[in-house]
Amino acid sequence: MHVFVAGATGAIGRQLIPRLVRAGHAVTATTRTPDKVDLLHGLGAVPVVVDGLDSDGLRKAVFTAGPDVIVHQMTALAGPSDLRRFDRWFHLTNRLRTEGADTLLAAAREAGVSRFIAQSYTGWTNARTGGPVATEAAGYDPDPATMQRESLAAIKYLDEKVPLAEPAGIVLRYGNFYGPGASDSLVELIRRRRFPIVGDGAGVWSWTHIDDAAAATVAALEHGRPGVYNITDDEPARVSEWLPYLAESVGAKPPMRVPRWLGRLMAGEVAVRWMTEGRGASNNKAKHELDWRPSWPSWREGFRSGLDDSSRG
Rank of each mutant, 00 (worst) to 15 (best):
V3L: 09
G7P: 05
A8L: 07
T9E: 06
G10S: 04
A11H: 10
Q15V: 05
I17S: 01
R19H: 09
R22N: 11
A23Y: 08
H25G: 04
V27L: 08
T30H: 04
R32V: 01
D35Q: 13
D35H: 05
K36Q: 02
V37M: 10
L39H: 07
L40V: 02
V46T: 15
V46C: 10
S55Q: 15
D56M: 11
D56L: 15
R59K: 15
K60E: 15
F63Y: 14
G66P: 10
P67N: 10
D68E: 15
M74L: 06
P80H: 03
S81K: 09
L92E: 07
T93V: 08
N94M: 02
T98M: 06
A101L: 08
D102P: 06
A106I: 09
A107V: 00
E110K: 11
G112E: 02
V113R: 00
F116I: 13
F116Y: 13
S120H: 06
W124M: 14
N126K: 13
R128P: 01
G131T: 06
G131H: 09
A145L: 04
A145D: 13
Q148G: 07
R149I: 02
S151T: 11
L152Q: 10
A153M: 08
K156C: 14
L158S: 08
L158D: 11
L164I: 10
A165N: 12
P167A: 02
A168H: 11
G169N: 08
I170R: 12
V171P: 07
L172E: 03
F177I: 02
Y178W: 13
S185D: 15
L186Y: 11
A202Y: 09
V204I: 12
D212I: 14
A216Q: 09
T217R: 11
L221Y: 06
G227F: 06
V228R: 00
Y229V: 07
Y229M: 03
T232D: 11
D234S: 05
E235K: 14
R238K: 13
E241Y: 04
P244G: 09
E248W: 00
S249C: 04
S249E: 11
V250D: 00
G251H: 01
G251I: 01
A252R: 10
A252V: 04
P255E: 04
G263Q: 09
R264C: 03
A267Q: 10
A267H: 12
V270G: 05
R273N: 11
W274E: 15
S282Y: 03
R293A: 15
R293M: 06
S295R: 13
W296V: 12
F303I: 00
G306M: 03
D309Y: 12
G313S: 09
